[in-house]
Write a protein that binds this DNA or RNA. Sequence first.
DNA 1: TTGACTTTCAAACGATCGTTTGAAACATAT
DNA 2: ATATGTTTCAAACGATCGTTTGAAAGTCAA
Lengths: 208, 208
Amino acid sequence: MVEAGSNRTKERILENAEILFAEKGFHGVSIREITTAAKCNMASVHYHFNNKLNLYLEVFRARWVPREKRMYDAFLASLEGEKEPVPSKIVTALARAYLIGPLSDEEHRRHRQLIIREMNTPTEAFELAANESIRPLFETLYNFLKPSLYKGPEGNLIFDIMSIFGIVLYLNYSRPIISLVTGKAYDDTFKTLLIDQMVRFSLNGLNV
Amino acid sequence: MVEAGSNRTKERILENAEILFAEKGFHGVSIREITTAAKCNMASVHYHFNNKLNLYLEVFRARWVPREKRMYDAFLASLEGEKEPVPSKIVTALARAYLIGPLSDEEHRRHRQLIIREMNTPTEAFELAANESIRPLFETLYNFLKPSLYKGPEGNLIFDIMSIFGIVLYLNYSRPIISLVTGKAYDDTFKTLLIDQMVRFSLNGLNV
DNA sequence: TTGACTTTCAAACGATCGTTTGAAACATAT
DNA sequence: ATATGTTTCAAACGATCGTTTGAAAGTCAA
């Protein structure tokens, strides 16, 4: 097996496939478009990934899941190994990791667009992302928040977490709407403000 | 102009186009698929709608916007013409109108899938929906909530409303995730529970 | 019933789709 | 240098895409 040149082509295909799939969706992108962007032959896709669908799934396996893990790790890292951090620290860590986090703006956009497509109309890729990333994050959050919030009615916490997920997801992906109603650009100072607001709202929502 | 038979075909095309566009997206559906479902000839699409893109836009003009208005009206109606309803009544009315509301489950799913695609990667259809529906709803909410919440720091309210939007949207469209993490079906009793939770969380978030 | 107009239809158009083929180019071990 | 296996390539495949065409069917006023 010759790794050097091959892997560079394989990586270029993956990179450009992700960019284009995120922007236009599975059916909105052709293999010709991907291989043109990746500066390689069309047949290379089938040599390295068998077919278009498997290339799409591989984008999630080899790119989406690891990137989600980077954000998850950033979230854990900012909790500095505390066993029972207070809710405000948990929510702040979550907001920072997933609204700013270790990703560039461009990475963030791709990441978000890919998973929102899958949440809207799930395919095999959603099961993959759910099992590898979403469920573990949810369970981590649940276990972190449970000690502080066990007093509430049974089952409330799971909804609270879902609501926080909703806010994070929404604030994160609805940039068009945010620009629409606020008339402001989605820049760094705006994101910082957004995180403050999100934390304030969520902590009030958690009623701590 | 002969209206009778023509309009029935035109309506059948619109109906099936909406179903299929919602489920598979613009590029995921072919005109052949739509006209087969609508039991008419392929050329009828071009006779009534000129081309595929305009059919897609017409789905938003003739179907999405009026349906959104039905929910908006249901929201206003449940406020019973009050000039200054309390926030709990506003949020409850909002949740009921947009999580249960006048729409069937199937209508709700289509409605939500169409707009989420547009929010994720906006086209001309998003501008249409934003100008006709989203912005007016946002402004109505803003004007209703302002009298009760004017005390807070300037600008907070707009973020609070966006957060509530986020929760409603998320709880509404993320049924796959909800089923995933709760293991429960998305039935009527579950929706009622969801509304209670959403109202509780949002009101706490608004800090009233 | 005739005539003008609207609507639907089967058939075909060129373009583009995902995929396959077989040979050329490349890398590595002996 | 040669043999062996890997990777890339141009070219073509059949299938399906959105759109167009021109005629048939349908509708209604005069």
